[in-house]
């Protein structure tokens, strides 16, 4: 019945729907801002955003804040992909390694990355490495878990078939195990990226001089609502952009 009503509606209207819902959201926001003093209006927020692009807030411009957070997230992300895929494949590949090391991982895994912040600051200080480390912990877990899942769920027929076709251990890894687990690895990478953003904001709220998380906490201290909203909107948009890029990437890397 749902499909029927969709077919009945003109196509052009359907394409406008996301725009309409966005408009509705902005109007509700606007009304809420007018009726209470809990929010700044969307227009004020947009104005502030435009201003922050050119005039420094907390010493640097808005794009600098975004860039600072982005660098931390991406550095941690690269490390997390390398470590997560490596360990995930090892866990799925070697029964013995799995039995020895997986319990340790299972024990550490439920600890929220943010709970690591105090310890990491004691170890690494409040510089860049500590923020990258927190993001790393947040990103590596989903990549590792999904890689392991992908490798261990691989149909054993593929392994048998590859052996029969003459694959050595290395060929097995590059032609069968890694591509077979790739969709699952990509899922892990997608989750890891947003998890990395959560962590960077949290880490910046505690100790930083720039970055979007720092901007939020700084604006809170000065009671500056528009700046909080600007930072939140940017976090949302950057994440949205990455998810979108990811869905494009999936089609390119896994065309099957």
């Amino acid at each position: 019945m749902n499909g029927f009503s969709e077919r009945a509606a003109p196509r052009r209207l359907l394409r406008l729907l996301p725009l309409l819902s966005l408009l509705a959201f902005l109007s509700v926001w606007h009304l809420a801002a007018l009726c209470t003093d809990l929010l700044a209006t969307p227009l004020d927020t947009a104005k502030a955003l435009a201003g922050m692009l050119f005039f420094p807030t907390s010493k640097v411009t808005l794009l600098h804040h975004v860039w600072a957070s982005l660098c931390r997230v991406l550095a941690a992300y690269a490390l997390a992909i390398a470590a997560g895929v490596l360990l995930g494949v090892l866990f799925g590949w070697s029964r013995r390694f799995h039995d020895y090391c997986y319990p340790i991982f299972e024990l550490l895994r439920p600890i929220p990355p943010i709970a690591w912040i105090p310890l990491i600051i004691m170890w690494l200080g409040i510089g860049e490495p500590s923020k990258i480390a927190v993001c790393f912990i947040g990103s590596v877990v989903p990549i590792l878990v999904n890689t392991y899942f992908g490798v261990s769920r691989l149909d054993p027929t593929y392994l048998k078939s590859a052996k029969i076709l003459g694959a050595g251990q290395r060929a097995l890894l590059t032609h069968v195990i890694l591509p077979g687990a790739l969709p699952s690895i990509l899922t892990g990478m997608k989750v890891a990226l947003s998890s990395g953003w959560v962590c960077v904001i949290a880490a910046e709220m505690i100790a930083a001089r720039k970055g979007l998380g720092y901007l939020i906490i700084r604006s809170m201290e000065s009671g500056d609502m528009v700046h909080i909203l600007v930072a939140m909107i940017l976090i949302g948009s950057v994440n949205f952009l990455f998810s979108w890029l990811f869905s494009k990437l999936e089609g390119v890397v896994c065309p099957w």
Partner: peptide
Amino acid sequence: TQELCMVFQKYALFPWKTCRQNIELPMKFK
């Protein structure tokens, strides 16, 4: 193993490889 090959009941093609890549695979291994 070099002397034999087996075709499985469930077609064990690698879904991430094209028709040609699947056929080339045993030669690549060699």
